[in-house]
Amino acid sequence: MTQDHPAIDPSRPQAAEVAHEWRAADLDPVAERRAERQVAGLFGAATLLILASVLIYGFTDYNATVGVPLLGDVNVINVFMGLTFGLGVFCIGAGAIHWAKKLMPDVEVVEDRHPLTSDEEARAAFAETFAAGVADSGILKRGILRRSLLGAMALFPLPLIVLLRDLGPAPTHGQLNHTIWRAGTRLVTDVTYLPIKAADVPVGGLVNAVPENLPQVEEQDGTLNARAKSVIIVVRLNERDIIAQQGGTPSAPWDYQGILAYSKVCTHVGCPISLYEQRTHHLLCPCHQSTFDLADAGKVVFGPAARNMPQLPITVDAEGYLIARSDFQQPVGPSFWERA
């Protein structure tokens, strides 16, 4: 058994001329049978595990959970069907690899490698045929044919590209520069849309807010586009802490008694940010750590953002609810080429 073991067909690639170390299974029938049993054991385990995975699927409720130490309360099908299936498949692989390593011939063989280039003659003949074929077509000689063909071919993809035009509308000035905020639009809380009284915002307070007409706009539009631009944060600072604002006059400031409204859309890449540190008055973006000073006109104090957070001018209406004085005076969100 062991003597003829690398019984390699003489017509097959020849064994490498390197001293070969025989394996236990090559020399010792006991080791050989042990290896055989190990491989069969792995295949047998695979069979049982795969059957088990099907049984688990069949006999478990789809949302049955069970507490497993370390993992937590897990879904039975996910964890146990997956585990038995995964281990079963792994055993197939492990068995095959073990078989190859222990029992299949492990004498390395040599195959010659022929140069990937052909001989000179063949190459010359190929080049000649190629040149002759091209010459026969006349494409080199008949310039007018060549040029007219190239012209036609160059235009051929054009209709296909033109057809992509309706992938989307052309960007318009209104879309790029405006939101649904208007003079008199009430600020309402996000999620439950409650109007906000000035007195309801304490110093150090934060309100994530949207325009009151957002639900109607979304109902009509069916998209989240309006929301993506109009979300704001409302904060209140001690008036003496406000260093600067983006606009307004002493008689008609953009804040209302220290209440400031800023866009929630980062001017860097548009992540919504409301990570507001009330003591430092800093607003931090969790995506790329741009930091804005809300006490100082939303100025960038750290990070990759280049522009101030746009401020929304606000005041109160007759009933004391916060309203916008106008739309934002600059485009909100990330920069774009046409932005001045």
Binding site: T65, G67, V68, L71, G72, D73, V74, N75, N78, V79, T189, V191, T192, L194, I196, K197, A199, D200, V201, P202, G205, V207
Partner: peptide, 28 residues
């Protein structure tokens, strides 16, 4: 504040955080 985030919403947040505290890991 309780006016801009009413007690009912605050309680809902507490309920959600309590849920997050559970070792509820269907995927392991």
């Amino acid at each position: 504040s309780d006016q801009t985030l009413p007690p009912a919403e605050k309680r809902a947040v507490i309920k959600y955080i309590e849920f997050l505290r559970q070792p509820d890991n269907p995927g392991g």
